[in-house]
Design a protein around this nucleic acid. Structure first.
Lengths: 240, 240
DNA sequence: TTCATACTTCGATCGTAACCGAAGCATCGA
DNA sequence: TCGATGCTTCGGTTACGATCGAAGTATGAA
């Protein structure tokens, strides 16, 4: 009965509120310093330091020294994926935190989920890709069709290059409030990078929300039109 | 920064060793009484009772009264899936518990993982299904082919009936020691039930290991032959 | 050098939750 | 009705770990 992986250990790591807040912040995808993480955790630097040591020892975080700064980030994709999973699960059980801040509408609209686009726009993008036949749903998973590959290549995504990596091209990621999926995987990441590179959108400094320029928004909505029946849905989407 | 699902809450629930042991035991798929769970948790009945209340309040467990017994089980598929995920992750970080008991070889060979077959035989079965073209790998997911549907129907699986449920037909589940996948989803469950019904195998009383009869083993191995190059691999497989 | 910034380590406090003994409640069988 | 079994609730103890002040280490800047 005592065999098997020790889920209690990682449960305990995630189970502390301060650590959970830090991990959630790092889902934003960028590395943060100990000082920044102390702030998001609502604790002093000393306390944060011990937490960060534990998270690193537990294999959840990786650190990179740079001058007198020490940047922490999620150790790898697996950690992001795990946290996504738990968030999705927690949402279905109604374990929500209830401090609707002023930034919430922006977060609902478009936000970063580890490394890909989430929120209303994220859900819309995947819906549109499926509706247009670029991505097909196969059982539990998602699959890029030939038509989709041609289309994405035409907007500047190096699909061939993405295929050569070990990471899955398409993954679906559950949007916790809407309970609908958006696109994760290396393709999801590449698409978001593409939007950044084109200047359609940019990150915000202290939040996971993504700001679209008016021009970028216009282009994005044109590129991923909503199906006819979907108008005025998707307002409450928000993820992770 | 405070929006989103509260991962700390469920992390804390899983993070207590006694609770984690109980949950792991319930991954065996059958409902257990509070007394039995107290024993696997290594705690008294009183303590177990409070743990079980918390797990139920947190949406992880469901209880069913039956006479003066109170049976606890995982609340639904989602919980099993979550625990599988965490176990898979924990295994990749080397968070293993180290009490190799006498039952371990049996567990490595074949065991139940929530409701489907895991371990050496579980991995072998999926490998064989893929090699024979019954199941294809699509990106991250698995897909039953037409040929596979015909083949499984012929051995007594009601594939059409399975398709009509909301649960995904094929899911892959990471085998933590081998780091290879075996088959989960409603099809994985149906296959294991099929083996039980045919009398090829049965559960053991106090463990998650599955015992094959010699006849059942012969049939199983004939039904799911190993690919030529795979001989003598798969000895160390064990899951969840 | 010297000072400032970024972070860690040490030491002590404190709160929470895990824990168990004992008592209480519910169901069953006789 | 009575005792036995299965489980919960109560109360008090204990232990662990989260927390922070203070001191220590490392890097950079002046």
């Amino acid at each position: 009965m005592k065999e098997g992986p020790d889920i209690a250990q990682i449960g305990a790591l995630i189970g502390d509120p301060a650590r959970a807040n830090m991990l959630t912040a790092l889902m934003g995808g960028r590395a943060l310093t100990a000082t920044e993480l102390a702030e998001v955790g609502g604790i002093t630097l000393q306390t944060a330091s011990t937490h960060l040591s534990k998270l690193e020892a537990g294999g959840l975080l990786a650190q990179r020294k740079q001058g007198r700064h020490r940047y922490f980030a999620l150790a790898d994709d697996g950690v992001g994926k795990l946290l996504e999973n738990i968030m999705g699960f927690a949402a279905t059980r109604g374990h929500l935190r209830h401090r609707p801040g002023p930034k919430e509408p922006a977060l609902r609209k478009a936000r970063i989920c580890y490394d890909h686009l989430a929120g209303d726009y994220g859900v819309r993008m995947l819906d549109s890709l499926i509706a247009s036949g670029a991505i097909s749903e196969v059982g539990d998973g998602l699959n890029l069709t030939e038509r989709g590959e041609a289309r994405l290549t035409s907007i500047g995504i190096d699909v061939t290059g993405l295929r050569s990596t070990r990471r899955p091209l398409c993954r679906s990621c559950l949007d916790w409030s809407e309970r609908r999926a958006h696109l994760a995987g290396s393709l999801g990441k590449a698409l978001l990078s593409n939007f950044f590179n084109k200047g359609w959108a940019r990150r915000t400094e202290n939040s996971r929300s993504i700001l679209f320029t008016s021009e970028g928004e216009r282009r994005f909505l044109a590129l991923f039109p909503m199906e006819a029946g979907e108008m005025d849905k998707g307002q409450e989407s928000a993820d992770v």
